[in-house]
Amino acid sequence: MRARTLLPATLAAALLTLTACGSGEGSTSGSSAGAAATPEASSPAQPAASNGSGSGAQVPQVLNFSATTVDGKPFDAKTLAGKPTVLWFWAPWCPTCKGQAAETAKVAADNAGKVNVVGVAGLDKNAAMRDFVADTGTGSFPHLSDENGEVWKRFEVTQQSHYVILDKTGNTVYEGVLPGGKGLADKVAGLTG
């Protein structure tokens, strides 16, 4: 019963921290995002399993999760292993997120096959998330429907319009806001060049 009373309070507190559209500055980090999820997640080099895609890349603990896309398709994050990954956390009603959409889509297109780009939608219902993808023209890469905030919690994201960039081993190399997506291409180029 105690968990039922704590969940609404926790969600309310999280929503209070999300009232602004990405006003925080970014940071670089050598630690893995989502390290609070499990103690072993602090060492992304520790494999969880083979990714099953035939590439032979080991899956860091941070990518050991599954979700559903805004289109209702299953998504296994293990398939991201072995390549740099951009996780873009956004909300459908956020003007800052809309301002990042074009640059994020351009980076995804320019780096297809070399870098994974995944949108992680939250803070609204799936129908609004699908509309955002259609309205912003960002349907060329997958977007997760994270209505319950599980992926946001995994990566300790507390505000929308937030990027988490992982290197090919799953280490977080950047997390923060990039207004208009400015600087995203340079950060990705540093991982592929």
Rank of each mutant, 00 (worst) to 15 (best):
W88Y: 15
S55G: 00
A108T: 09
A91M: 03
A121H: 13
G119F: 15
F89I: 05
G56M: 14
E103Q: 10
P47A: 14
Q46K: 10
E40P: 09
E40K: 11
D110K: 02
G72I: 11
A77K: 02
P92H: 11
F132Q: 03
A36S: 14
G72F: 14
G122S: 15
T69Q: 13
S32K: 00
A127R: 05
K83D: 13
A128H: 10
A127G: 13
G113A: 04
S43C: 05
W93T: 09
S140I: 01
K73V: 08
R130N: 13
P74S: 14
V86K: 04
S50Y: 02
V107R: 01
A108L: 07
P39E: 05
D110N: 05
A128W: 04
G34H: 09
T85P: 06
K98V: 15
N51Y: 09
D135C: 03
P47E: 13
G54Y: 14
S43Q: 08
A127E: 14
A91P: 07
S50V: 06
S32I: 02
Q58K: 06
G119K: 13
V59K: 03
S53K: 12
A112Y: 00
P60T: 05
V107T: 11
P39M: 00
S55L: 00
S29A: 09
V118E: 00
K98A: 15
G122H: 15
